[in-house]
Each structure stands twice: as structure tokens, then as C-alpha cells.
Write a protein that binds this DNA or RNA. Structure first.
Lengths: 365, 365
DNA sequence: AGGAATCGTTAATGCGTATTAGTTATGCGC
DNA sequence: GCGCATAACTAATACGCATTAACGATTCCT
């Protein structure tokens, strides 16, 4: 005879008054007249260990239903040595006051893919405030509570990241990040996308195309230039340093005069890289307007990415879209693979060409 | 002598190659030369059981840090403790493809407040896709992994919610929801806000004001009407059924004629309730336009909420803003209190009056 | 000086479930 | 009728952590 149900282990926080204890497998077992293990086996429902008689199975199922049994996820996860949690860590707030600055598009994909794979997400509210985790050197160590973790933005401290990677903790970075040996990441395929844009322009009849880029060397910039040059080459067009202009105020500013010079010289199309400020694109638009050349009848313009929000109105810009949602999903897929101990897959996600209205055939000579 | 680390319990999924398992308290203990219990005591950090020497405490902390120890949430939870995780559950996708339909404004507040209190967030990717969780009767049971859970939207199945509440699991619903006995919730104080709007109109000199509402009885509608009537009463203005118009197409539609009837009868201001469709406000604007009365010179208009996004341009509408971000924060505060076993606090968050330009003094008689 | 009170730590136990190694029934062949 | 495989369960154990009773070592008191 065992004590009824009054289990009041001392020291245990007193259960909130009036709280009906949830039924456990052991209670289902008692009601069904079998052992707890049997209940577990039946409820696991695996077709594999089918060594349970139909009669017993039914008794257990009935008992479980009548008691309203629900498994305790904590216990389940503890016993299974996994918790079906994927972390999401962004150095800045994940939900900044301004949606524009948020990772929302990524999160859409992350949530979808995570849900599809049965994972829940842990948002580490790190960094932003020093709440309880403070900003110690082990600030990132809480992420280990998940089975693996996604990092957004390039602000994650390299040292800590390296540590996680070295420990074999599954980590995926959204955005190219290959200076960190062994870090898995997913990124947009700027090379191919840029190359395609050039290809489209060439197909329209353009023979001389110039890339306007800013004067820094982020991977995103380098990739685009690389793709641009490959595109020229593939189309049999003149490449070389003359096809690329690094604008740098004030010495090498993109002025209307300079633009005129190019068009007079036979250049019929311009391509600008996308950056977070949209600097190159802004400069290009301004120069075109000041030079009083019409787009797209006199010059064609294309942007290697999407225009900044404040320039988003007006006719659609020829260029490509970065599939952030798909990137988020790809990141989760990759992370799930790492968690499962598989090898990393293809990290590049292709961008989608956007025809737009700022490019057309070159003017007749 | 115990086996080194090769713990390969049969049946357990083999750890991914090369992956160092997360450190456990027992490993921290070994490194620090103490027992697992001591580690637990030290890491619990309770000032209460201060029966640990500073020297030992330091050894343990160092060991934990150097191993990157992080407690297993499932184990913690199982041992009837807390794990500093708050759940966020929305029946629809938390990050829908369209930001407009998302809970973003709430999440901003939720994240801020959670971070400030040292909680991380678990996003339960429920329902939306049938991924792994399917739609069983225990769909909500996963939330029990967290210390408590926030529910967004009124789609959370009442049965499951009731179950969680009955079991004493801390739950907070964002948005009024008092048909469910014992469910904690936070909501906007529509009564006070509506009352204030009426007060402002009265202060401007309006003596007859009519409320245009839709024909349903959601709490949000009832609250607004209640506040509206209280406002009239406080200002000593005529209330009663005549002051409220339930528009219901087609029998009782809000037509220009009807509007004219009111203005001819001395009504100088109209107030519409906000709904998700914005129906009442749309009808009111249309009627005013068709009746060719000018706003605000001839009639004053106010909206008990914010205009729908597609009507957001033009002059600002007199009314009030629902402080979604603050609501999110308030929800977290309440949830934290419940988790701590305290009693629920004030669930209402006040709205902010928005002066706008659609209301002014009544025309001279 | 002998016993009590105190301090610092550890051994032991439980949380609820999954898994596996038994342990009984039952049926079978010879 | 006696092993022996098979079926149907159950006992035992581990998961990682929190909690507490118990214990050895000091220090304190009278």
C-alpha cells in the first residue's frame, strides 16, 4: 500500500493552492493495471517495439484518455537528451523599436523552417541590456542551452564564436563569414546574381557597362564586383579596371560630368552595388538626374540588390532581391543538419532577378 | 575509479562525431574537486544557504566558466526549479509573411522587458504548420518547458488554456480574455481612453455627440461604448440609447441622410469605434463626405483607436493610440510575477490620447 | 574536558519519462 | 514431459539538477 497522493516532499516549493496535479504515466499505469514502462511503450506508439498486445494497448489508451494524460515535455526531453530548441542570437535587439532595422525577413524563414522540423526557438535577449546575464566574457555561453544556435549580424564576438565552434557546438551564422575557420554560415549568392544582371543588360544590347561601388572591401562588395566582372567576361564585353568605379568623396566623387564622360564614351548602362546606406545607388541617381540623361531611354541603370526603403517608391528598379526569408530557412536547415551530426550543405542561396523598369535597350547610336 | 567519459549508454543516439558534449554539473564538480551538490548550491547563488566557503565558491565558479557550463533547462524544470525561460505562443505564425499582421509591436515590449529581467524567450512554433507538433490535444503542452507562457491572439484553444491554468502553470494572455475564469491577461484600457476622448470633445464645446459602432459584442466594443457613455455622463451631456448608433447593413446603414438628420438635430461630433476592419470609421468618413459637411469646421470626428493602415495618410485622426509595446512589457511583468508566485497586478494599460486634426470647436450656431 | 552548537560538504533521493535487461507465461517440437 | 524459443510485460536504471538529511571537523560553552 502506498501513500495516496499527498506527496509533500519537504523543501519543495508548495504547489499553488488548489492545484490539481497533472496525471503521470504511473497513474495511468495504475488505472490500467500495468506498469509505467508499459504505458511509456504504448504511448510512444513506435511501430517498432510492437510487442504489446492489442488488449493491453487499448486499456492503456483508454486510461490515458480518461485521465487526460499529457506528457511532461521537460521529462521527455531530459530522458531523450535533447531539447528540440534552436537558439537565435543577435547582438542587437532582435526586435528593435523600428521594424526597418529588424531581422524580421530572416525570422519569417527561420520560424517556418524550425516549425516544420519540430524545433522551437529560443531568443537570447543577450547583449542589449545587462539584465541578469551581464555582459561577461561568457555572455554567449547561455546559448548552449539550445541544441544549436543561429547568429544574426556580424557583431557576434569572434572569440566567443570560435570557442563555441571549437567545442563542437552547432553554430550557423547568417551572412557570409569565412574569416572564421570552421564557422558554418549561409549567405546570398551575390556573385551569380550580379553576373546575371550583367547578362541581362548584355542581352538587351548594352556593350559597355560600368559598375559603381563604394570604397570599402566587405565581402558583399567584393562578391558583387567579382560577379560583375564574370558577367562581362561571359558576354564577351570589355572588363578590366576601367569598368569599375570606386566612388570616394571628395577626390573621386561621382559627378554629372564624370557620368557624361562615360556616356559620351559609349557607356550605355550603369550598375551600382547595394550597401546598407545605399550610397552608390544614391550617387548614381543624383548624377544621372544632374546630367539630364533619361532613364531608361538614354541610359540603363541596375542595382545589385534592393533600393533603400526611402527610395523604394517610383518605378521598380532593375536588379535582384535578396531572399532573406529563404536564407533564414536555409540557415535552419543547415543548423538542423549540424545538430544531427551531418555535414554542412550548400551555404549559398540564390537571389531572384527583378526585371524592373530602369533598364531597357541602349539608345540607337 | 569511474569510466572516463565514454558514456555510451546503449540505445542512446550516438553523439555526433567530434562533438564535445555539453558539460554537466558533475564535470564542473570534478574539475573543481568538489561534489555535484556543491556545484548546484554555488550556482544556485542563493544568499540564503550561505553555507559555502568563499574559496570553494570561487573554485566552482572558475571551473564552471572555464568549461562553459550552462544548466540544462529540461533538467532544471524537472527538478521543480525555474529556468529563466518565458514562452511566447501565438496560434498563428509569430512571424507571418506580412509584417502588418504580425505581433511585432508587442514583441518589442516583450523582448525589452524580458531582457531587463534576465529571461530569455522561447518561441513555440506551434500550430501554424503541422510540422511535428501536429494538432493533438497536447499541442500546448510543450510550453511547460518554460517557466511560464505568454499567449498572443484569441485563437488559443480555450480548453488547453484552461488546462494550463488549472494546473497552476503561469499563463498570461495579451488582450482581454475574461470569459476564461482565472486566466491572467493584460489589455488596453479602452474604457478610460474612450472616456477621455469624449471629455476632450466636450471641452471643445460639443454638446451632442454620437457613437458609431458596429453590430457585434466583442469586449473591445463593449468597453468603448461603456467609456463613451461614462464620458458623456461626466460631462453632463445627454446619453442614453440615442447617443449610440449600431450600424448594420443594410437595414440600419449609416447614410448621408441619417448623418444630416443628426447634424440638423444639433449633433456636432461623431465618434467611431476601431475594429480590425475599420468598418465603423470607414462608414462614418463616407457618410460625412457624401453629406458634404466639412471636418473639422462643421463636424468633429474622433476614432476610438488608430485608423486602419490604408487610411493612415492624410491629416492625423483625433483619437487614441493603443500602446502595444507597453502592453507587451506589461504582459511580461505580470507573467514574471505569476512565476514568482505573486499575485496578479493591474492588467490594464492606458492608451495615449492623440489630438489629431479631425476635431475642433463646434460651429457657431 | 566533555558535550553541544556550528560550519562546510557530501551522499542520497526525487522529478517524469525512455530504454533495456530481465522475468514470467505460453506454445512448440521431439 | 522436458528443454527452448517467443511473446508480453515489468524491474531497473539513466537523464541532469535541486534539495536535504547526515556527517566529519571545528569551535564554543560551562
Amino acid at each position: 500500500m502506498d501513500e495516496p497522493r499527498k506527496r509533500s516532499r519537504p523543501g519543495r516549493a508548495p504547489a499553488p493552492a488548489g492545484r490539481t496535479a497533472r496525471p503521470r504515466q504511473s497513474e495511468v499505469a495504475r488505472l490500467a493495471g500495468v506498469s509505467q514502462a508499459t504505458v511509456s511503450l504504448v504511448l510512444a506508439g513506435k511501430k517498432q517495439g510492437a510487442t504489446i498486445s492489442d488488449e493491453t494497448r487499448q486499456k492503456v489508451l483508454d486510461a490515458a484518455r480518461s485521465l487526460g494524460y499529457v506528457p511532461d515535455p521537460a521529462a521527455r526531453r531530459l530522458a531523450a537528451a535533447r531539447n528540440d530548441l534552436l537558439g537565435v542570437f543577435s547582438f542587437t535587439a532582435t526586435f528593435p523599436t523600428d521594424v526597418q532595422h529588424s531581422y524580421y525577413p530572416f525570422l519569417v524563414g527561420v520560424e517556418q523552417e524550425a516549425a516544420a522540423r519540430g524545433y522551437d526557438l529560443v531568443l537570447f535577449t543577450g547583449s542589449s541590456t545587462g539584465g541578469a546575464g551581464a555582459a561577461g566574457p561568457d555572455a554567449l555561453s547561455r546559448v548552449r542551452l539550445a541544441d544549436g544556435c543561429l547568429f544574426l549580424g556580424r557583431h557576434a564576438p569572434a572569440g566567443e564564436l570560435r570557442r563555441l565552434v571549437a567545442d563542437g557546438f552547432p553554430v550557423v551564422h547568417i551572412g557570409r563569414r569565412d574569416e572564421l575557420e570552421g564557422l558554418a554560415w549561409v549567405g546570398a549568392d551575390y556573385v551569380s546574381a550580379s553576373r546575371e544582371v550583367v547578362g541581362r543588360l548584355a542581352a538587351l544590347g548594352h556593350r559597355r557597362i560600368v559598375l559603381i561601388r563604394e570604397d570599402d572591401d566587405a565581402p558583399a562588395s567584393t562578391d558583387r564586383e567579382h560577379g560583375f566582372l564574370k558577367g562581362l567576361e561571359a558576354a564577351g564585353l570589355p572588363g578590366g579596371p576601367a569598368a569599375v568605379f570606386r566612388s570616394a568623396a571628395p577626390e573621386r566623387e561621382l559627378t554629372a560630368e564624370r557620368l557624361r564622360g562615360w556616356t559620351d564614351d559609349g557607356v550605355t548602362a550603369f550598375v551600382a552595388e547595394e550597401t546598407d546606406t545605399g550610397g552608390a545607388w544614391r550617387a548614381l541617381r543624383t548624377a544621372v538626374r544632374d546630367a539630364r540623361v533619361d532613364c531608361p531611354s538614354e541610359v540603363s541603370l541596375a542595382l545589385l540588390g534592393s533600393p533603400p526603403p526611402d527610395l523604394a517608391d517610383g518605378p521598380q528598379v532593375t536588379g535582384f532581391d535578396i531572399p532573406r526569408t529563404r536564407l533564414g530557412a536555409a540557415a535552419v536547415r543547415l543548423l538542423a543538419a549540424l545538430v544531427a551530426g551531418e555535414e554542412a550543405a550548400e551555404p549559398l542561396v540564390s537571389c531572384v532577378f527583378r526585371a524592373g523598369a530602369t533598364a531597357g535597350p541602349p539608345p540607337a547610336p
